[in-house]
Nucleic acid binder design. Structure first.
Lengths: 125, 125, 125, 125
DNA sequence: GTGGTCTAGACCACC
DNA sequence: GTGGTCTAGACCACA
């Protein structure tokens, strides 16, 4: 993690936490780092981590057990993936194709770098 | 303009203006709307439009003729396109393909909506 | 026990215990489950159950016999009922009727679900 | 407002704000007090009011216009009422009838205080 | 002027 | 030990 980014720190941390869960490094059965632990590790204020955890709780990515700590929600990976898919299909994808035409993108350039994806696309038809 | 969008309004307007120029609706020979006109049209504070125009002037997308108004720069479309291409190739594109695999996107779904683009892609090779 | 509930767990347990006594499942003559037994059954920390028992002792709902265990107080049901009645009449009931008007509740809806109670109400007059 | 209550201050403020909107004192067209204004008026820290406004935004009760302030959402009253109704029907109502039987409530007592409601209930059938 | 984020430090209830 | 709330004060971008 580094915080040079313009995005709010607590959201960067949220991404980080989601990523850990998505990759299976933190599983529903086990407690994720406490507010204080993670704050110390990342060298930020505990309030900032608290805010991250509140944010993720509300998105049903993690759940709190009173007096014990936070745990990944049972269906956390599905939730995260669904959330990102929605984002991707609604925003990124239309933007992508809009840019393709608007910017007169040199398709050979893409082909060079990402050709295999396009071929898979066609293969999948 | 969407006041609830997380992107700054003056940047939303900058995108809008760039788009008009890119699409050839506003050409180098003709004055673009004055700060007040555009502010009235978009129902925003003139200061905000002013900020947009300053921003675009600085990027050499528009130029100011004192006492007359703002005009698209002669090479505005090239400038805009170059800027956006850079952005697209460096950030959007890698992110796009990263998501494609990470989210296990159903390619048939994309095909349904954007198939013609992909086919054009292949035809252009 | 619902760890996600906003009410403290030891109070949730206190309600549970009170309920058992109120319903006559645990009577003054017989020992109620030991701290460890109940903790195991409810899958909570024994300290938490301890706190419940201390709380209920203080309210004269249960009594401790040293070396033997906890027993419902002789007048436990009266104590509990008095306590809850107070709570009910002072807080719940006014709130209930306030909401009934404020929220424009469809009384037919209530009738459908709880009609028998209302009819009993009238019969009891 | 007084904050002797055990409920978190920011939630008490949220109730207060909702109430104002519900009563039509603050309408969708007009800005509600700024974070700083309300904080000064209620003599709490601006962060606390900020937290209230975040909470209410998220519940779609108020919306933010960048750089201008917060406004009641267009359908704020519906949202608030729906939320409270849900709460009432799911929690308060079942609890109410459960208590009626469990506590052996003296119905004449209720009749005395709230009789007119019950009669309306019957009249509505 | 508006909101938004972050830090530092405190106090509390609860497990 | 855990989270949760609150204050005080700072800095920033934006309208």
């Amino acid at each position: 993690m580094d915080f040079r980014d313009k995005q709010a720190i607590y959201l960067q941390i949220a991404d980080h936490v989601s990523e850990q869960i998505l990759l299976g490094r933190w599983t529903p059965g086990e407690r994720i780092p406490s507010v204080r632990e993670l704050a110390a590790e990342l060298e930020v204020n505990p309030n900032t981590v608290m805010r991250t955890y509140e944010f993720l709780s509300q998105q049903n990515v993690i759940v709190n057990k009173r007096g014990i700590g936070y745990f990944p929600a049972d269906d956390a990976t599905d939730t995260i993936r669904a959330f990102r898919r929605e984002q991707f299909l609604q925003n990124d994808l239309p933007q992508f194709f809009k840019n393709l035409t608007l910017l007169n993108i040199d398709l050979a350039e893409i082909e060079t770098r990402y050709g295999q994806y396009i071929h898979e696309t066609n293969a999948a038809q």
